[in-house]
């Protein structure tokens, strides 16, 4: 019996250091080893780092004089550009929330919702397709669905007497674009959140029930708190996904919606209000938002991995 109190201390030292088998002899001092990864770093330097750095430097430089300036960033604070950021952020948030909710509920249905196995397989395949079905053809599909003569528009008008466009809806506006983005957003949610739902152990539910918890108590006190980091993480991924979208918005609205990507696009083309410095600043602004989103995403992912491993 004396063993018991001892054992509580016995293992404290070993906690946390038993991950990963010993990494056998990586002697990275030899230059030959570095040769093996040179092509990769050279490529990524040329085609990711250099272009980003170019934009970054350009954003801090006066176009005509070449001197350091913050003027380009001050140029972002015009109503036009601020509204572009605001609309882009709003549309990204709305589609991340909407797509997140729909995608989560569908993933819930096929993982713990008690549906037959084939529904899951089919849903995951469908989601793989839909998450990749974006850009120009997606815009065409939604024009045929919710455009002025689109099938759903006509259906609602003739059968239910509801004229969407009289009600102020337009496919080429904020909500129309949101509906369109949702088409690739919710499948992306299904794909990212399904593994997390699979990670919910049956024993957690049973342990909760065993301790007297109702289904509701299990979900609010155990399952949802455990799932919260991956859910938030996935929604941030969705946010980034619409934030950077360009082709879908352009082909749907013909460039008449004021999104950051669209503004950058016209800066590249150099057609309206051409001002390279401002373009660079716009691009840097986007990267900053995306980088923040990704940082939160990875922090959340680390937390949930810590919880779910073993």
């Amino acid at each position: 019996m004396l063993l018991a109190p001892m054992s509580s201390r016995l293992n404290t030292e070993t906690v946390g250091i038993k991950r990963d088998a010993p990494q056998a002899r990586p002697d990275s001092s030899r230059w030959r080893n570095w040769l093996g990864v040179t092509p990769f770093f050279l490529f990524t330097f040329l085609f990711i780092v250099l272009p980003s750095a170019y934009l970054l430097v350009g954003a801090f430089r006066n176009n005509s004089t070449g001197q350091f300036t913050l003027g380009n960033f001050l140029g972002l604070f015009t109503p036009e550009i601020l509204s572009a950021y605001w609309v882009t952020i709003r549309i990204s948030a709305v589609t991340a929330l909407g797509g997140g909710l729909l995608g989560f509920m569908m993933a819930y249905a096929v993982t713990v919702g008690g549906l037959p196995r084939w529904v899951r397989t089919t849903l995951l395949t469908f989601s793989g397709v839909a998450a990749n079905f974006a850009g120009v053809p997606l815009a065409f599909a939604f024009i045929a669905t919710l455009g002025r003569t689109g099938m759903v528009t006509v259906f609602l008008k003739t059968i239910l007497g509801l004229d969407l466009y009289d009600q102020g809806f337009s496919l080429y506006s904020f909500w129309g674009l949101s509906f369109t983005y949702l088409y690739f957003q919710f499948p992306l949610m299904v794909l990212t959140i399904t593994p997390a739902l699979d990670g919910l152990k049956r024993e957690w539910r049973e342990a909760a029930e065993n301790l007297g918890a109702s289904t509701f108590q299990y979900w609010t006190r155990v399952a949802l708190p455990i799932l919260m980091p991956p859910i938030l993480g996935a929604m941030i991924l969705l946010f980034g996904n619409s934030f950077g979208a360009y082709a879908t918005a352009l082909s749907l609205t013909g460039g008449f919606i004021n999104l950051v990507t669209i503004v950058i696009g016209s800066q590249i083309k150099g057609d309206i209000l051409y001002n390279p410095g401002l373009g660079y600043a716009l691009a840097v602004g986007m990267v900053v938002v995306m980088a923040m989103a990704m940082m939160i995403y990875f922090a959340l992912r680390r937390r949930s991995e810590r919880w779910l491993r073993q």
Partner: peptide
């Protein structure tokens, strides 16, 4: 780095 920013750079 979104595609539109990448292509710009």
């Amino acid at each position: 780095v979104p595609a539109i920013v990448l292509v710009f750079g």
